[in-house]
Amino acid sequence: MVTKAIASYRMKSLDETLSQLSKEDCQLIAGGTDLMVQRKSPRGAPGRFDKPVVFIDHLKELKQIYRVNQDIHIGACCTYSEMMEHHLIPNILKKAMKEIAAPAIRNRGTIGGNICNASPAGDTLPLLYIFNAKIRLRSAKGERAAEIRDFIQGPRKVDRLKDELVTEIILPEVPEVQPYFVFEKVANRRADAITKISFAGSMRWDEGRIQDARLAFGAVGPTIVRAADIEQKLVGQAFPLNDKVIDGIVAEFESLLKPIDDHRSTGVYRKTVALNLLRHFLEVRA
């Protein structure tokens, strides 16, 4: 009975990293803020890593933030702290990041990590769904992009091939003037807490009519819940929304959301609060 040594790599460039990924099945580590907890052994024993480890947190190719036309590109290994200080990152996303963990974790944790960890309670995810974020992946063979709602398939499950690496998150067509935005994280305390339920909503109206509405809920199902068909029913409605329309939308989500009981909260609470926050959002006057 001997502890097996695990190979680890910290390549100089993205290309070398991709080349390594094409050779063997590896465990990628960006900030490590989720993995180091998930793979923790009882006290005194080394972490449970069973594949070669590839560190990517230092790759500068993955740390760029830039704008192309109306699209904002965010390198997958940008930390929350870096994003919170960058002028191109929308304020609402900064607000959400400010509620993640505490400064030490925000200095390590990355946006790509938050996505690939695919926790139903992932703090940036409801907003990334609202932004219709695209996930850009690269491998030694080439490149592709996926919609975030397709990329995240379930808890801890993403559509990433073994030789692929998430390089960028793209927020497409971010307008200069932000629409009405709300993000609410509900947790047992004000820092270092895991979300019990979160809600993100955005709404744009013009001349008394709703032009666009997006609604996303976190920690109420296996992945973030967004429903295009329900959102569509809001478009064209008179603003401010009347009670009947609001009741209708809330009722739709009432049958759609099916949160569970766990050691952090109850299904009933999650659902009630989700609908409370939704109703409050829809009741906005100006």
């Binding site: 047992n188 305390r189 004000r190 820092a191 895991i194 050691h263």
Partner: peptide
Amino acid sequence: IEQKSISDYGPPTAMD
């Protein structure tokens, strides 16, 4: 006992 970590149990932080 269901709560096995400080964050799940939820003692106050400096923010609270």
